[in-house]
């Protein structure tokens, strides 16, 4: 039943045109169509909401950005009365505190995630999981008070030690005599260092939760392969869990970074406001964007409000970017994954 085709006509027409992929009707049942519509509109409304918030803040920021231009990003002072406004100091402080929080929080989150997924017996596991999750429910205010009254008196000893031994390094430099018998304690208080430690307590549950989720997904087949070769638990972790969980570690870290960048109350309670680009993190005084907004919002005039919203817009873009990167890492499948358990 060959169809006779005139060779001449085939040659004259575009062969590809004869071979078009046909439209495939998904053939969904009515219930599926309704559900898909509902789910799609809810999902889209989330997207619209985020974009609307961004657009609102961005719109409010326009007058400020127009008035100050690039100076808004390079100026470190925040003195509306002198018409000097800029976020550079607060931006640097924000990033410093966030990185200090990660430095202390991530190893802790990583180790507890490994303990939970690999070592803890079942009963202890659920208890530890609840405890770590509970940390996420403690208000930032409480961590701020903890940082100020309980942590700070001890942390300044560590700060002093750092400046004594590593003071040649700009990060740990403090403009006072660290070796003096009556050392100036107040030069070490209310620093980015201490605020960062307090914030680290707040990012641990987020990072830990993401990491333990990914560690627990490490394929059982590969775990058994390692065990059957005579591996210790640490051997299984090194050969299977960590290579598999790498994206979870990175994703959890980025999520924690996004969280740390936006933390407000705890930081506001601890820091001593200083508007300058400052790299000696263990010395008194720093500022973050969110603390700036929270601290100045109440007394702001209309023009100042726009400036604060412009600062908020910078933070919004920063955290959105960080979280987007985190999402990419958490969702991306690992390379070379042929065998999925």
């Amino acid at each position: 039943m060959a169809v006779s085709v005139d060779p001449a006509s085939v040659a004259s027409t575009d062969l590809h045109a004869l071979d078009e992929p046909r439209v495939i009707d998904p053939g969904l049942a009515r219930a599926d169509r309704v559900f898909r519509q509902v789910a799609r509109s809810i999902g889209l409304s989330m997207l619209v909401l985020i974009l609307a918030i961004g657009a609102f803040i961005g719109y409010q920021a326009i007058p400020t950005l127009r008035a100050y231009g690039l100076d808004f990003f390079t100026e470190s002072a925040w003195q509306p009365e002198l018409n000097r406004i800029g976020v550079s100091g607060a931006l640097v402080g924000t990033i410093e505190i966030a990185l200090i929080a990660l430095f202390f929080g991530i190893p802790f989150a990583w180790a507890s995630a490994l303990f939970i997924s690999e070592y803890a017996p079942p009963k202890l596991k659920s208890a530890v999981v609840s405890l770590v999750d509970l940390m996420a429910a403690i208000p930032g205010l409480v961590f701020g008070l903890w940082g100020f009254f309980l942590l700070q008196p001890h942390a300044i000893d560590l700060s002093r030690w750092l400046s004594q031994h590593l003071g040649w390094f700009p990060l740990f430099k403090v403009n006072t005599d660290a070796d003096a018998a009556m050392w100036a304690q107040s030069r070490y208080t209310s620093s980015a260092f201490i605020a960062g430690i307090a914030v680290s307590m707040m990012v641990i549950p987020y990072a830990c939760s993401v990491m333990r989720g990914v560690f627990a997904q490490a394929p059982i087949g590969e775990r058994e392969a390692a065990l059957a070769l005579g591996a210790t638990r640490w051997g299984v972790i090194r050969a299977v869990v960590l290579p598999f969980g790498r994206r979870g570690v990175i994703g959890g870290t980025m999520l924690a970074l996004g969280r740390a960048l936006g933390e407000t109350v705890a930081v506001l309670l601890i820091i001593s406001p200083t508007f300058e680009i400052k790299f000696n993190v263990i010395e008194v005084g720093t500022m973050t964007i969110s603390a700036l907004i929270a601290g100045r919002f109440g007394e702001a005039s209309a023009g100042q409000l726009s400036a604060l919203l412009a600062a908020g817009f910078v933070l919004f873009v920063l955290t959105l970017g960080v979280n987007a990167v985190a999402a990419v890492f958490v969702n991306r499948s690992r390379s070379g994954s042929i065998t999925e358990a």
Binding site: P219, G221, E222, E224, A225, A226, A228, A239, V240, P243, F244, R334, S335, G336, S337, I338, T339, A341
Partner: peptide, 11 residues
Amino acid sequence: MVFQKPNPFPA
């Protein structure tokens, strides 16, 4: 031990 499903370390 060799398992039912091949389980090389993919990384």
